[in-house]
């Protein structure tokens, strides 16, 4: 996987995500569009009122996977810059847990890249949320990331 350009910004944070800073980071003179995704904490889960969420990550791997996502969107879409920030720890209802900003000369690529980035993040970045309710807490249902099968044995055979 190629390294994303140093102009990208990839962050795990424990305080409020500064969305304006991410947007300004991707804004350059060549861009005609900036598309953002703001993922925020919902007040219920399957109809059960949520009190708050607590996020944890395998931090070194999560950062590596987020950098891979940035590299992939550069390879797939004609965009300029990517900024991805995910927050960890306790988050209250309405707070931003993940924020993505993508800039591009034209809007279609920025929309497509932003959608690809959040969809891939939810499927492949090792971050977990625990949902707290009046009467207890549960780890949220998640997605099992795709895993290469027997890569090592193929390497050994070659």
């Amino acid at each position: 996987m190629s390294t994303p350009p140093s102009s990208d910004l990839i962050l795990l944070v424990r305080n409020v995500i500064d969305a304006d800073a991410l947007i300004n980071h991707v804004r350059t003179g060549v861009d005609g569009a900036i598309v953002t995704f703001d993922g925020c904490v919902r007040n219920q889960s399957h109809g059960r009122p949520t009190l708050y969420l607590d996020y944890e990550a395998y931090e070194s791997m999560a950062l590596a996977k987020m950098r891979e996502i940035a590299a992939e969107v550069h390879a797939k879409f004609p965009i300029d810059r990517v900024a991805i920030a995910h927050r960890l720890g306790r988050l209250e209802i309405g707070e931003t847990s993940v924020f993505i900003a993508v800039s591009a000369p034209h809007r279609a690529a920025a929309f497509d890249a932003c959608r690809y980035a959040i969809d891939t993040l939810k499927r492949s970045v090792p971050i977990w949320k625990k949902e707290y309710f009046e009467d207890g807490a549960v780890w949220a249902d998640g997605e099992l990331p795709p895993v290469p099968q027997d890569t090592q044995s193929r390497k050994r055979a070659s």
């Binding site: 993922g39 996020y55 990550a57 395998y58 791997m61 999560a62 995910h86 847990s97 993940v98 959040i118 993040l121 939810k122 499927r123 492949s124 970045v125 090792p126 971050i127 977990w128 949320k129 780890w139 949220a140 249902d141 998640g142 997605e143 099992l144 990331p145």
Partner: peptide, 10 residues
């Protein structure tokens, strides 16, 4: 080596 349950970030 890490053992990872289904991920639920975002």
């Amino acid at each position: 080596i890490a053992f990872l349950p289904p991920v639920s970030g975002g």
